[in-house]
Design a protein around this nucleic acid. Structure first.
Lengths: 342, 342
DNA sequence: TATTTTCGCTAAATCGATTTAGTAAAAAAT
DNA sequence: ATTTTTTACTAAATCGATTTAGCGAAAATA
């Protein structure tokens, strides 16, 4: 007993499938189908347990009600939570999400975009890796709507939703300064990513505004796919020196870095915040139950996800109507815990 | 300039689209298309930047190369990591993943299954919520292959991959006993979930085997969608008593519970492991940098995800060939850290 | 009564692929 | 020289919906 199709219903009632389609799409009135037939179509649809084939609908209408989501790694709680919000908003409008983890690898993301285009997704939400400018530029010339999240390329004019990274890092750094820290370090990722660069820029500006010279030795830029050993090296360079050269605080530009770093700091027998103060981007669970709960820059994940989806759905529903690109910058939330002392 | 179709290539070369299809599907030899034409088809395909429409393929062939994944919450790192492994294995075989978060809500999961069926997914991987037996039973009668993960229903004969929860909890409890703990508590979720029940059963058996009577006051079953206050209440009941009635150790049946509980314990000013020892299921990041890093029962997420996908793909590729249901039970890994003292 | 309008419905095209059945021309076999 | 086989290809059906154009009968209007 395989699935019933429109024709099955039509056949059973001796009517055309056009009629059945009209009835089941609520267009009975519009096409003045008689109430009697209407009832019977619905009854048979029920009886045969009919449910429309979205693939067939997709082929005919050109809308698959599917969105492609490309993020670095769905296992990373930051993207997981973002994905959740996006899913929720999508579901409210009958859309499904296909997710792809790019691992920050532009070849992968290019391949994933291609794959999703073949799958005829109605739109994309993308957190683009470094060196993916070209893919995004090509996408921008095409017809499929998309929104970038978390990062964007200043030179490409397209929808994006980001947070005010400069301001967030500035605030965090000022907080450390206000608590008397003077040798503040920053561990970050490849600065070609606009968001990472903004964070480090905000950090530097805060130092300058406090008349503290920026010491480039205190800025550790990790390689792309960073692991424990990279973080350990950075920590050693920052903390393994004589007292007056040592860092007395660190701003982590991502929680992945922060978690590995804190693990490392603990294993060196150092205490937070006594030996070293820390602040990190991203309000991840781990920071809440940490040795000394970590002061963080929380991102408005709910708002990012929801807004991205809303902009996307709006473009999908009004194709061709290129109003103008939506460039949204949201505020972060600075959450003070115990990792900076007082 | 819209996307090129098979017909566009055919038209351009003055050949049939049948031929084009054969060539592009590598069946040129089989249908003895001349090398010359073959070359030219490929050249034009390249020139027009042709890429097949998977929706059309899906409609014709009945395979969408899409898998539906239903888990409780993609934002939960446990499911996020699982999702990641599943995605990876799927991608290796050219399959995409549509994910749905059910929030452990059977109505939601029923609706999501229906939706995914309409989308003609080739298979499902599901972590079924309580009270979803009926949906799963119906699914088992249908034609679409599926695999359950993390939980299963003993009375339903279908593919599933779980871990040996009883054994894991037994081991963890014995570990606590060996360190001299005697009033060991367990905080868990609704015991209708087979996996949760097994965990608590394992815990109880370990106590009995050590000739310790099970004190039901030490087993706290949280409501379904548990929040901070529920956990706080449980912790208060366990630790807010006179010394000889107090718990001296707790086994958390999920990391979500554990994280909230540890936050709560810290805020009460209690020290782990001195005041209370803890062990938890799930080796989540948070536990690595915790006040005192938490001893955990790690689940083989990579293996669960990979195996589930492999079983599923195997069934998809050999439809009708119901070999037999695959019921896999994997071992967990007990990772000793500092949260139990020594 | 003749014409127009409304009513209730259907045929057929279409989306973009795959696949079965077949055909005309050339080559091989008789 | 005729038949058979092989070669190199094509027409058309199909998957399951949507949608345009239109048709015959009944009702309304002239």
């Amino acid at each position: 007993m395989k699935k019933a199709s429109l024709s099955d219903i039509a056949l059973r009632l001796g009517v055309s499938k056009t009629l059945v389609s009209f009835v089941l799409n609520g267009k009975a009135k519009e096409y003045r189908i008689s109430d009697d037939i209407c009832q019977r179509v619905m009854a048979v649809a029920e009886e045969l347990n009919y449910s429309p084939n979205r693939i067939a609908q997709g082929l005919r209408t050109g809308n698959t009600k599917t969105i492609g989501l490309i993020i670095a790694d769905i296992a990373n709680p930051f993207f997981g939570k973002l994905g959740r919000e996006i899913e929720q908003e999508a579901a409210r409008h009958g859309y499904n999400i296909i997710f792809c983890s790019s691992d920050e690898n532009p070849e992968k993301s290019a391949q994933q975009i291609a794959m999703l285009q073949q799958s005829q997704v109605d739109g994309f939400i993308i957190s683009p890796p470094i060196n993916s400018e070209n893919q995004i530029r090509i996408l921008a010339k095409g017809q499929i709507p998309f929104v970038l999240i978390d990062r964007f390329f200043p030179e490409i004019d397209c929808n994006h939703i980001v947070v005010d990274n400069f301001d967030a890092a500035y605030t965090a750094t000022k907080h450390l300064l206000s608590l008397g820290r003077r040798r503040i370090a920053n561990i970050t990722l490849n600065l070609d990513l606009a968001n990472m660069k903004d964070r480090t820029d905000g950090y530097k500006q805060a130092l300058r505004d406090a008349s503290i010279e920026v010491d480039e030795n205190l800025v550790k830029v990790l390689p792309f796919s960073h692991e424990n050993k990279d973080v350990a090296l950075a920590i050693n360079e920052l903390l393994g020196k004589k007292d007056d050269l040592k860092a007395d605080a660190i701003l982590f530009s991502t929680s992945k870095i922060g978690i590995m770093a804190i693990e490392c700091i603990s294993s060196l027998g150092l205490k937070i915040p006594d030996d070293i103060a820390v602040v990190s981007f991203d309000n991840t669970d781990a920071y809440k139950i940490c040795v000394s709960p970590v002061t963080v820059i929380g991102q408005p994940l709910k708002e990012i996800g929801k807004t991205a989806m809303q902009i996307l759905l709006n473009e999908i529903k009004h194709p061709g109507v290129k109003v103008k690109t939506q460039k949204v910058t949201l505020k972060t939330e600075f959450i003070v815990r115990k990792s900076c002392g007082s």
